Simulated scan of single mutants.
Amino acid sequence: MDITTEKHYNPGQYRLVAVTPDSDTTSMSLDLTPQLKIVDVRQYLSGRPTPGNRGNVVTTVVNRGTGPTWVFNIVYENAPYDLATTIDASPSLPTANLALPKTEAEVILHPNESQEYMGSVPPFVIPNSKSCDGWSSETVVVVQAARNSNTKQLVRASHSGELLSANFRNSCNEISIEMIGKEADDA
Rank of each mutant, 00 (worst) to 15 (best):
D2P: 07
D2A: 11
I3E: 07
E6K: 14
H8C: 15
H8F: 15
N10H: 10
N10R: 14
P11T: 07
G12D: 06
Y14L: 05
Y14R: 02
A18I: 10
D22I: 11
D22W: 14
D24N: 14
M28T: 15
M28N: 13
S29F: 11
D31P: 05
L32A: 15
T33M: 10
T33C: 08
P34I: 05
V39E: 15
V39Q: 11
D40V: 06
R42N: 08
Q43F: 04
Q43G: 09
P49V: 11
P49E: 10
P51G: 02
G52K: 08
R54E: 03
N56Q: 03
N56P: 06
N56S: 15
V57M: 11
V57N: 02
V58S: 07
V58G: 00
V58M: 06
T59M: 08
R64D: 10
P68C: 08
T69Y: 00
F72Q: 13
N73G: 06
V75D: 09
N78K: 11
P80Y: 00
D82V: 12
A84D: 02
A84Q: 02
A89I: 13
A89C: 09
A89T: 14
P91H: 07
S92C: 09
P94G: 03
P94S: 04
A96R: 12
A96S: 13
N97G: 11
L98C: 01
L98V: 03
A99N: 13
A99S: 15
P101M: 06
K102F: 10
T103M: 04
V107C: 07
I108Y: 05
I108H: 03
L109F: 01
H110G: 09
H110S: 12
H110M: 14
Q115L: 11
Q115S: 12
Y117M: 00
Y117Q: 05
G119P: 02
S120N: 15
V121R: 04
V121C: 03
P122D: 01
P123K: 00
F124E: 05
V125R: 00
V125M: 10
V125F: 00
N128K: 09
K130M: 01
S131Q: 09
S131E: 03
S131N: 08
W135G: 00
W135D: 03
S136I: 05
S136N: 13
S136D: 08
V140F: 11
V140C: 08
V142Y: 00
V142T: 08
V143R: 01
Q144Y: 12
R147Y: 07
T151W: 05
T151I: 04
T151K: 02
K152N: 15
V155R: 00
A157N: 03
S158Y: 12
S158V: 15
S158E: 12
S160I: 07
S160E: 09
E162G: 07
E162H: 11
L164I: 04
S165R: 06
A166H: 13
C172Q: 05
C172E: 03
N173S: 02
I175Y: 00
I175S: 01
E178D: 14
K182R: 09
A184C: 03
D185H: 12
D186K: 10
A187V: 13
